[in-house]
Amino acid sequence: MSRMLYSATMSLDGFIAGPGGDMSWLTPYLGPDPAVDGLIGEIGALLIGNRSLRGDDPHRGDPDKEGKAFGGGWEGPQFVLTHRTPDEPVPGVTFVNDLDEAVKASKEAAGGRYVNIIGADVARQCIGAGVLDEVFVCVAPVMLGDGVRLFDEPGGSTVRLERVALSETPHATALRLRVVR
């Protein structure tokens, strides 16, 4: 059965995007990483937020990587959770306006592999619905001071996690965590 995994790279102070969704901060930290490469090989489908799909790209300006999942390192079915479906279809992307429907469809498409969640708001919704199974986060050696947090829920709720793996490269420290239920 497919499991739901939220992955992101964040700054040491907890931001996955800078102010206004800026992702250019990430570019210097996109070096080779065996943990990330291993994760990419485990992904069967993506569940993405609309802002992430249409947002800034840390690979901007690189025609071989820009606009591609994991900079072109992954291909497969993509599901975008949104209430604003575009007028024109996007090849390889299915737009869904209901979280339960998006989770079900992405799990079916993943074929027993992980559904990788991209986007803080979608991850927050999955946490709230109790469907998130794991978190994979790379901590980059930088502090942004402002932007989009990895997990932000004013008034908050505690999500207990258990470390599954830890690895390091010169670019980041990768943590793989399981949601404790």
Rank of each mutant, 00 (worst) to 15 (best):
A8S: 11
E66A: 09
N50C: 09
V96E: 02
A110F: 14
P77W: 03
G147A: 08
G145M: 10
G156S: 14
A45S: 14
S167C: 08
L175I: 00
L39Y: 15
K104E: 14
D33Y: 03
M143S: 15
R51V: 12
P32A: 15
L144G: 09
G20H: 05
S7I: 00
M4W: 10
A69E: 02
T27W: 09
S24A: 14
D37P: 06
L166C: 08
G55Q: 01
A172N: 11
D37T: 09
L150F: 15
N97T: 08
P89Q: 00
L53G: 04
V122I: 14
L177Y: 14
Y114F: 15
E168H: 13
G67A: 06
V80S: 00
Y6H: 04
P34W: 02
G18M: 06
E162W: 09
M23G: 11
G130S: 06
T173A: 12
A69G: 03
D13I: 00
V103L: 14
S11C: 09
E66T: 01
E168P: 00
G41A: 13
S167F: 08
M10D: 02
M23T: 06
G155H: 12
S157I: 13
E101H: 05
L39I: 01
L39M: 12
I40H: 10
A172M: 13
N97A: 05
S106L: 11
D152C: 12
N97F: 01
I117M: 07
L150I: 13
G156W: 02
R54K: 14
N50I: 04
L30Q: 08
R60E: 08
A35L: 07
A45D: 03
P19D: 08
V164T: 11
Y114C: 05
V164L: 10
E153S: 14
V180D: 08
N116M: 09
P19L: 05
T94D: 06
E108W: 03
W74S: 09
P86H: 04
L177A: 07
L144R: 13
A110K: 06
N50V: 00
D37W: 01
E75T: 11
R181V: 12
P63T: 02
T169N: 10
E75C: 04
D100M: 07
P154G: 06
Y29K: 02
T173H: 01
G145A: 07
L81G: 03
G71W: 01
G130W: 07
R160D: 08
S24M: 02
S157T: 15
I40A: 13
I48M: 12
V131R: 07
A8W: 01
F70T: 04
I16D: 08
Y114W: 15
F95D: 01
E75F: 01
M1I: 08
G145C: 12
D98C: 03
R51I: 12
R84A: 13
G73D: 09
L30N: 04
D100C: 01
P170F: 10
M1E: 15
V131F: 02
G31N: 04
S106C: 10
N116L: 10
E153F: 12
G20C: 10
P32F: 11
E42M: 13
P58W: 03
P34H: 06
L5D: 09
V36D: 11
